[in-house]
Amino acid sequence: MATKEAVNSSVGLGLAIIGAVCGTVAGSLSTGPGAVRLVGLCLGAAIPPFVSTVGRWRPVRAGFAVLITVVAAMVTYSGSVGVGAATNSKIVPPPIELVEEIAGRSTETTQTSTPPAKVGLLEAMPAKLNCRPVCDSKVTIKSTGTAPAHVDTVDIDGPGKAKFTRTDECVGKTLEPGEDCSFKVTFKPAGATSTQTAQVVIRGDQDHETKVELSGTQPPPLLDLGVSSQGLSCILQPGGTADGRDELQVFFHVSLTGATPEQLPGLVPVQVTSVPGATVTVNTAVSRSSTGSTVAALPLSALDYGRGHSVTVTIDPGHKIAERSETNNVLRFRVTIPAKARAPRTAELSC
């Protein structure tokens, strides 16, 4: 009796397991279309109690459940094979490590497949340009980006901009990557007594700008003018002026060193002043022998006779000519004009 009950218990357990497995396989039909899904859910719920319940035809019911399970497995497998063939994929899922590796490669491919945006950039060389007064070199603009760069404007700005000029070779030009162009900067130091500074401002696409610092200096001139007592003479000339007045004629020499007469801006202005007396300004030329000779005529009045006079000769009194030194530009001497004679005549005076 006990043995029979044990056998029945074991058979019941086996049939329960078969029913559970068959119900699970039949339930896999729930991933199919609507009608198939409904049938799969119903079979999955009905098969376990249909097989495990004690009663007539229990073995037949178990066999019928196994048959349904086989049909469900075939339907599920054939659907998976069809999807795999259509998508060129396998039914068995790949290992998680392979999924992560493929995902990483996909991300990397996505990141590297999008090329960066091309940008046009300009660079100016040198960073600083010295002019003494000739500039050291030209200014070069180079396209350093990944796209063509347009040179919109080239301006000179800064406190000393009036002393600098530039040529137009690069303005409005489009430079391919790696291409460059150059232009010339000129410094004109006329009237400048100190170092002049400015900037070359180059503007390109999207308001991108680059700058070159400019520095201009006036080198010490080699030219030098001078006046000395060598060749100095003073002549009293009655009625020498155009209006018949007497005059004191002062003869002097102007020397030139470090340059030729052709390098002078023009005639050299000279101012001659007598105290007491008058002041006159004359312009003198310098000969090819680098020595200029001229005469300054100082008109005399009756009060100028019978007394001494202090005379000053000044070369380039307005400092218009740049010189190496101006310490020798002034000559001072004294001359005494005797009392006026009843019958005045030309006389050479000591000075």
Rank of each mutant, 00 (worst) to 15 (best):
T260C: 08
M125K: 14
K128Y: 04
P159D: 15
F251E: 14
G172I: 09
V171R: 13
F187Q: 02
R203Y: 01
A124S: 06
L256V: 06
F187I: 11
T273L: 04
G14N: 10
I156G: 03
T165I: 09
N328I: 01
T165P: 07
N329P: 10
V280S: 05
T146L: 04
T193C: 04
H309G: 02
P220N: 12
V39E: 04
D243H: 03
T53D: 04
V254N: 01
K118G: 05
A16H: 07
R332G: 13
E247H: 05
V185L: 01
K90C: 11
V60G: 08
L236V: 10
R324W: 07
L298K: 00
I235S: 04
G244C: 06
F64A: 15
D168E: 13
G34V: 14
K161E: 10
H208I: 06
S229H: 06
V36D: 09
L256K: 01
F183T: 14
D205G: 03
E247S: 10
A117C: 02
V330A: 02
I337G: 02
A285R: 14
V134D: 14
S289Y: 14
V154M: 03
A85S: 14
E101Q: 13
T76H: 13
L303E: 15
K163V: 05
P177N: 09
Y305W: 07
E5R: 15
V99L: 10
G32C: 11
P48S: 04
G292W: 04
L129R: 02
V227Q: 01
G306A: 08
G204N: 08
S28C: 11
C22W: 01
S229M: 09
V92I: 12
G63N: 02
L264W: 03
V311Y: 00
L15V: 03
G160T: 05
K4E: 14
T76F: 13
R288H: 13
A20S: 13
G14K: 09
P133L: 01
E262M: 04
G216I: 01
T217P: 06
V25W: 00
L222K: 15
S28Q: 13
L129Q: 00
